[in-house]
Amino acid sequence: MVVAISAGTTTVALPVELRRIADLTIVTNSIPVAEQFEPSRLDPRSSQTVLLTGGEPTLSSALVGPIAVSTVRGLHVDLLFLGVHGMHEKAGFTTPNLRESEVDQALVEAAHRVVVLADHTKWGSSG
């Protein structure tokens, strides 16, 4: 199975749960998410593969820009865990970073299924 994980403060908590799943390929544009899958944190029998999209890092260590978007557009993923800045009934799922939103859109287009990861502070907010 191929799982994509976008950048964000909420998505960085997810790898703790995914590290236990064998035969998993993880695609991410988040340096902190990728760091959670370092071999020293994994079970020695782990068969996971982690792929970083490449691109230019933002202040929050998300990889963005044309390299990241192009890489993601060439992929097909089974499941995307998408972090969002806000969820608003009119604006939808949002982020205040335009370059990050381009990568997020490419991830959504590459995914068979999308799961939004957000906490209660995101409701009614937009970016």
Results as ranks from 00 to 15, higher is better:
residue 110 A to G: 05
residue 52 L to F: 07
residue 117 L to M: 01
residue 103 V to F: 09
residue 90 K to F: 11
residue 125 S to T: 14
residue 97 N to I: 08
residue 83 G to K: 00
residue 79 L to P: 00
residue 45 R to Y: 05
residue 92 G to C: 03
residue 60 S to F: 14
residue 16 V to D: 12
residue 67 I to V: 12
residue 125 S to Q: 10
residue 40 S to L: 10
residue 93 F to P: 01
residue 51 L to T: 04
residue 107 L to A: 06
residue 78 D to A: 02
residue 95 T to L: 10
residue 105 Q to H: 10
residue 4 A to S: 04
residue 115 V to E: 01
residue 120 H to D: 12
residue 43 D to T: 00
residue 93 F to A: 08
residue 58 T to F: 09
residue 71 T to C: 06
residue 63 L to I: 11
residue 55 G to F: 10
residue 33 V to Q: 00
residue 19 R to S: 02
residue 39 P to N: 04
residue 30 S to P: 01
residue 92 G to V: 04
residue 61 S to Q: 15
residue 2 V to G: 07
residue 31 I to S: 02
residue 119 D to N: 14
residue 54 G to F: 05
residue 10 T to M: 07
residue 12 V to H: 00
residue 97 N to H: 09
residue 16 V to Q: 12
residue 86 G to K: 07
residue 72 V to L: 11
residue 21 I to G: 01
residue 80 L to W: 02
residue 26 I to D: 01
residue 92 G to E: 00
residue 19 R to I: 03
residue 92 G to I: 03
residue 10 T to Y: 01
residue 65 G to I: 11
residue 97 N to M: 09
residue 80 L to P: 03
residue 127 G to Y: 11
residue 99 R to Q: 14
residue 110 A to W: 02
residue 37 F to C: 07
residue 93 F to Y: 09
residue 47 S to Y: 11
residue 76 H to Q: 10
residue 9 T to M: 13
residue 22 A to Y: 07
residue 62 A to G: 15
residue 111 A to Q: 09
residue 48 Q to Y: 05
residue 57 P to V: 08
